[in-house]
Amino acid sequence: MPLYTVTTRKSLPDQKREELANLIMNVHCGLTGAPETFVNVMYWENAPLNSGIAINVLGTVRKGRTPDMNQTLQNEMAAKISDLLLLSAGEIEMSLFEMPAQWIMEGGEVLPEPGEEAFCEWLQKGHAE
């Protein structure tokens, strides 16, 4: 968690997939402070999308951040995806879906609330890896 599902009309080359996954992780972690080990990216390629849309990114993220933070996360991620894939803003759909942390497990442990990672004993010991 978070899980970002990237849906594209056409397949992406392996290098672009890797670059995009790293971009998503870096933007998410850079803005939220979440550990990198939490970020997962999944691809669904050659999918039907709405007319004019080249990529759809749905991020399932932990609930508890401010609306401003979520908007910043969406805006920055969409802008960087646009730069990486040479797409216009209109060709990108970006959505976030919030899920309570207590509904999510990593490495057999329930995730801490956003901002409480430093107080999470199992995470500090590296059991989530």
Rank of each mutant, 00 (worst) to 15 (best):
H127V: 11
Q102T: 01
L3T: 10
A79F: 09
A47R: 15
L31S: 01
I81S: 02
T7L: 03
P100E: 13
V110A: 10
Q124P: 08
L85N: 12
E106F: 11
P112G: 08
I104Q: 12
E109H: 15
V61R: 06
L58P: 01
L31W: 01
P67A: 05
L86D: 15
L84Q: 04
E117T: 09
M77Q: 08
A101W: 10
D83V: 09
K10M: 10
K63H: 11
N75H: 07
L58R: 10
V27D: 02
L123C: 11
V110L: 13
G33I: 07
S82K: 04
A101C: 14
N56P: 00
Q124Y: 05
L84N: 02
E106V: 13
D83T: 05
E36F: 09
N22P: 01
A47S: 11
L87H: 10
V110I: 12
T5F: 12
L3K: 00
D14R: 03
K125Y: 10
G30C: 09
W103D: 13
P100F: 07
T66S: 15
K16G: 12
E19T: 06
C29T: 04
I55W: 01
M1Y: 06
K10F: 13
N50G: 14
V39I: 15
E106S: 06
W122K: 04
A89V: 02
V61D: 10
L123I: 13
M77E: 02
S82E: 11
Q71R: 13
I92H: 02
S51Y: 14
G33E: 03
M1L: 08
N56Y: 09
G59Y: 06
N75D: 12
C29P: 02
T7P: 05
R17T: 04
F119K: 06
L111N: 05
D83K: 09
E91S: 12
V41G: 09
A118H: 15
I53P: 04
M42S: 12
L86P: 05
T7E: 13
V6Q: 03
E45M: 05
N75F: 03
C120N: 15
V61S: 03
E116V: 04
F119R: 11
D68H: 10
P2Y: 05
L111V: 14
A47F: 07
Q15F: 08
Y43M: 01
L87E: 00
V27F: 05
V6G: 09
T32R: 02
Q15C: 08
Y4A: 11
P35A: 08
T72I: 01
E36D: 14
F119W: 04
E117N: 01
V39F: 01
P114Q: 04
